[in-house]
Nucleic acid binder design. Structure first.
Lengths: 113, 113
DNA sequence: TTGACGCATTCCCATATCGGCATACGATAG
DNA sequence: CTATCGTATGCCGATATGGGAATGCGTCAA
């Protein structure tokens, strides 16, 4: 078995830096492929490929506009990512200087719930 | 070129479902490798490999405890992920029923710059 | 219709997985 | 010292990847 297909889920899709950059750019609005490619310093086929991945996981949508295809952001798929990471918030706020005692306390706290 | 090494950054590390499961388990406290492997239904070498990746991106740390090695969570590295995704919050809160018009407005706004 | 333009797809390569299996390694028990 | 337990690592195979180059294809302009 190899790595799961990047097109299989959002976490894989956003694992690639250039795809995150595309998403960031699209926050400012729709853009045609060539413009994205140029702004990110990648080839047109390269941009198309990344956009395809983003499309397949639903982070991006296309709209036909004559010769061009305008890609737009659909960030709803990022919400699960945000929530997943947020589930660890209380942990990164803790002091890790004494991880051992920290974990002990946590166990204790959980038992008191 | 292939995909960047998964050990290169946190986004890649958490792209793998089993690694996310490991992190989830570790929220309850430190655990030795074998226990993790058993709880996740994976082989010991498998667990060790995933733990290595998590270690290399700093999401996990080890503590020697006699024969065992206790792995503990260090969620600080997940904060950037949370914040990155959070940067899109206002977008997933938008109504996408009228995405077209929404984007139109946005595009228009860009042209007026 | 023909040509130019914008984009997607395909093929190829070098690489990085992930999983299984065997094995090496460090620490402890006897 | 030696056997054993708990882990880490090495090697293999099957697969997915990202990038480059070439190409297919639909749309619009002349």
């Amino acid at each position: 078995m190899a790595r799961a297909a990047t097109t299989s889920d959002v976490f894989n899709a956003i694992a690639e830096p250039q795809r995150r950059e595309i998403l960031a750019l699209l926050r400012a609005g729709e853009r045609p492929v060539t413009e994205l490619a140029h702004e990110l310093g990648m080839s047109q086929p390269g941009a198309s490929k990344h956009l395809r991945v983003l499309r397949e996981v639903g982070l991006v949508r296309v709209r036909e506009a004559g010769k061009q295809r305008l890609y737009g952001l659909d960030a709803r798929g990022l919400r699960p990512v945000h929530e997943w990471a947020g589930g660890f918030e209380r942990f990164w706020n803790e002091s890790f200087d004494r991880l051992d005692t920290y974990v002990q306390d946590l166990k204790q706290a959980r038992q008191e719930d």
